[in-house]
Simulated assay, not measured.
Amino acid sequence: MEIKLSRKIFNSLEDSQLVRACFDPLIPLIRGKSNKVKEEVYNQLTTEQKKLFIFNAFYNHACNSLAEFYWWSAFYLVQPKIWSELKSALRHFKTDEMLGILLEMEKVTKAQNNPIELEKFDVSYNDLYHNPELYSFVSPLFKKFVDVTQTTLNLIGKAIRNNPTAFILFEE
């Protein structure tokens, strides 16, 4: 999909800002839309854009709070294709610390005997606050998630900078 950006803006952005600049144009195309529309948009993306998309779709929700980090991790996990794509994207961008955190979340979530099918998904944001043991596992993982965010965004930004035409089209 053609996401246009001027060279001047591209060169002026910090790596973490570049991640947003390459993803933000997609938001109006998917926000509030049906899953069918979202899938159509996703299918128009290049392989690299898909990796960026799946990371941002998760990150932009999970970063808001401990409860959202837990809920979105569990929600992605019951969708094996999406969870696999997220882990693949993190491997591709060489964001090993972030990948490690999500692998730990995978273990924690599975240990809770949460539903493994989307149709039976009943995880609540409040589950953390009603289960002290769960809270004690997830809370430090969320702290790590927050702590490695800037490094992760910088690594992804560097990947974009090293191969810009896989993500954007320069407007002249």
Results as ranks from 00 to 15, higher is better:
150 Q>L: 13
101 I>C: 06
59 Y>V: 01
76 Y>W: 14
114 N>K: 05
170 F>C: 05
142 F>H: 04
89 A>W: 00
154 N>L: 03
166 A>H: 10
165 T>D: 11
93 F>I: 04
104 E>M: 09
84 S>Q: 14
155 L>P: 00
161 R>L: 03
146 V>L: 11
113 N>C: 09
66 L>P: 03
130 H>W: 03
103 L>T: 00
130 H>F: 07
113 N>Y: 09
166 A>P: 01
125 Y>L: 12
124 S>R: 15
120 K>Y: 11
83 W>E: 03
81 K>E: 15
95 T>D: 06
132 P>D: 10
161 R>D: 04
97 E>F: 03
106 E>D: 08
59 Y>N: 11
140 P>L: 12
130 H>I: 07
69 F>L: 06
135 Y>M: 14
62 A>D: 05
80 P>A: 03
80 P>K: 07
61 H>S: 15
109 T>G: 00
143 K>Q: 12
125 Y>N: 11
64 N>Q: 09
93 F>P: 02
80 P>V: 07
62 A>I: 00
88 S>W: 00
129 Y>V: 05
91 R>Y: 14
121 F>W: 05
147 D>A: 15
68 E>R: 10
130 H>M: 05
110 K>D: 02
57 A>Q: 07
157 G>H: 08
132 P>I: 04
71 W>D: 01
168 I>G: 12
104 E>S: 14
72 W>T: 10
171 E>L: 03
136 S>Q: 09
71 W>C: 05
150 Q>G: 01
140 P>F: 13
67 A>P: 00
133 E>Y: 12
100 G>K: 01
163 N>Y: 11
149 T>R: 15
136 S>F: 02
145 F>L: 04
133 E>C: 03
84 S>T: 12
86 L>Y: 06
57 A>M: 04
62 A>Q: 05
108 V>A: 12
122 D>P: 00
75 F>H: 09
139 S>V: 08
70 Y>Q: 10
123 V>M: 07
134 L>H: 13
113 N>E: 03
63 C>E: 09
61 H>L: 07
61 H>Y: 02
167 F>W: 05
152 T>P: 10
142 F>T: 01
162 N>V: 02
155 L>Q: 14
57 A>V: 04
127 D>P: 12
148 V>M: 09
84 S>H: 10
139 S>W: 04
92 H>N: 15
91 R>E: 15
78 V>M: 01
99 L>F: 13
126 N>K: 08
55 F>R: 02
81 K>S: 13
111 A>N: 12
98 M>H: 01
70 Y>I: 08
168 I>C: 11
151 T>A: 15
85 E>P: 03
153 L>S: 02
128 L>I: 07
151 T>F: 10
88 S>Y: 01
55 F>Q: 03
122 D>F: 01
105 M>G: 00
76 Y>L: 05
146 V>N: 09
170 F>V: 10
84 S>V: 02
162 N>M: 12
69 F>M: 10
90 L>S: 05
111 A>P: 01
98 M>P: 05
169 L>M: 13
94 K>N: 13
153 L>W: 09
135 Y>S: 12
108 V>S: 08
94 K>V: 00
154 N>S: 04
68 E>K: 13
131 N>S: 03
138 V>R: 04
105 M>T: 01
101 I>L: 06
106 E>I: 07
143 K>S: 06
149 T>I: 07
148 V>D: 11
167 F>G: 14
149 T>H: 13
76 Y>T: 04
122 D>K: 15
152 T>Y: 10
145 F>R: 03
151 T>R: 14
94 K>S: 10
81 K>A: 11
63 C>G: 09
